[in-house]
Design a protein around this nucleic acid. Sequence first.
DNA 1: GCCCAGGTGTTTC
DNA 2: GAAACACATGGG
Length: 216
Amino acid sequence: MDNLSGNLRLLYQILFRAYGRQYWWPGATPFEVMVGAVLTQNTSWSNVERAIRNLDAAQCLTAPAIIAAHPTTLGALLRPVGYFNVKARRIQNFCRWYIARGELLAQFPTVDLRRELLAINGIGPETADDILLYALNRPVFVIDAYTRRLGTRLGILRGDENYEKLRALFETELTPDVALYQEYHALIVRHGKDICRKKHPRCNLCVLQANCPHNL
DNA sequence: GCCCAGGTGTTTC
DNA sequence: GAAACACATGGG
């Protein structure tokens, strides 16, 4: 576990060389990014895109419209993302907070925003950090299942660390750089989608480096 | 037909 | 407190 800083930086370089820039988050506006962050919970992004198109087509891609919509109507638009009844409630909860915060949002300190986001029913640590990093451009490192899996397979992590522990790990070892955090998380997800778990059950480096021990 | 996906909240032991 | 369960669609 020594020289972790070096490991995390090296991993970033390897991923960047393998995949290049990812142009994340896919979303036209910050608000759309926030909505997408809630909708993508345990759901593939292609399904989220359908739901966002539905919202847009129904003139329902604004916070006031989402709040005003009947939960059943909203649920029908969200059908493609799965858990649509749950997520209808969740984005309404989020939008009520978003409206209440109003223009002052951009000026709030990151720690305060994070605490408030986590207090919303339906916003957990990953969703909160997606919103902070990709919609509000705050230097918060996003941890997800791909991050855990990759770190575990590379032997950098044990795998059972809790969310805050992992976030602290990355944020301590990397300089607080929004562009770096945005790109790093995007690369981890890209790699996670790219590798086939059945072909590479043990090691994620195989597909990145020809000199990985498993390829020798 | 079965497993998984850019999680989170509630219920149960 | 941890562990199990509920939420639900679309793609491989």
